[in-house]
Design a protein around this nucleic acid. Sequence first.
DNA 1: GTTTAATATTGTAATGGTTACAAATATGAG
DNA 2: CTCATATTTGTAACCATTACAATATTAAAC
Lengths: 153, 153
Amino acid sequence: MVTNMRAQTKLREKTDKPWNLDEIGQFLGQQGIRPSFHRLKIFEYLINERTHPTADEIYEVLKKEIPAISRATVYNTLRLFFDRKIVQVLNIEKNEARYDATLTWHGHFKCLLCGQVYDVEIESLELSGLDNYQVLEKHLDLKGLCPSCSHKK
Amino acid sequence: MVTNMRAQTKLREKTDKPWNLDEIGQFLGQQGIRPSFHRLKIFEYLINERTHPTADEIYEVLKKEIPAISRATVYNTLRLFFDRKIVQVLNIEKNEARYDATLTWHGHFKCLLCGQVYDVEIESLELSGLDNYQVLEKHLDLKGLCPSCSHKK
DNA sequence: GTTTAATATTGTAATGGTTACAAATATGAG
DNA sequence: CTCATATTTGTAACCATTACAATATTAAAC
Ligand SMILES: [Mn+2]
Ligand SMILES: [Mn+2]
Ligand SMILES: [Zn+2]
Ligand SMILES: [Zn+2]
């Protein structure tokens, strides 16, 4: 059991402080991932912004600060993070993979108008008929109109 | 309220009889969809097999009986069915869309080994924080190993 | 039945997110 | 510093899906 570790990826709360690069480096190290600068920045973006970005959104943002960064590095790094189980991949929409460093069980709502992806708290869920099934991933995905887009309409 | 209509797409039960082409034609007509032969056969496959096929799986199967059928027709028809809300699209996996003519609320389990997609009954689900959100689609997607693949392993 | 307009189907080219890959660069142990 | 290993890069390839224009079919109008 790890004790001296930054509070793990839970749903964002008002009181949450952003993770700094030192904390992230420590965290990646603990997961057996060499904390290169690019990896630090990519994980920093995921854990502090929590907007469920696509690979390309991360690339476009980081390019401003790190002009030499390559799209391939972003894709490689996200796949590494997923393989090491420190991020989850969201397939709400089939034409785009989104990434989420929050691993506690929660759902997602994607607004069909503005495209934003919101976290959804799951109070309870009961399934049946899954005896002898080995469940490795669970995703609850909603689509519709967010409050502000619902208004505009 | 439609009364003289074939029992709507509910979860498959042991007692279910397959739909015949007449019933399907009637159903498509009621939905404002001209029941061309291709459309009948595509819907027939979805509603009677219920294997959550991809567009390409449908194409490969129907090609045996209708050698002249085009992949584009399968894609076009599936999109039409989705727009008219008589099928749902599953994005469990990002690289493949699967289609389901069962519209009652249920979840899906995809086996990462054999690739089969199973229906999952949802006993209950409680969400919070969705006030003023207009929910148009709900998907519960699980991944893991199905009983027989779990064994083999 | 013939003409005409609307709809459905087809084959193929284009799209776009992602992956593969080989070359270049950076890192770290000895 | 030197060598082996790991990381990053740029670009080509992949592949499911979509776009599109041509062809075929259907249904209505005459
Ligand atoms: Mn989330
Ligand atoms: Mn189903
Ligand atoms: Zn919105
Ligand atoms: Zn299986």
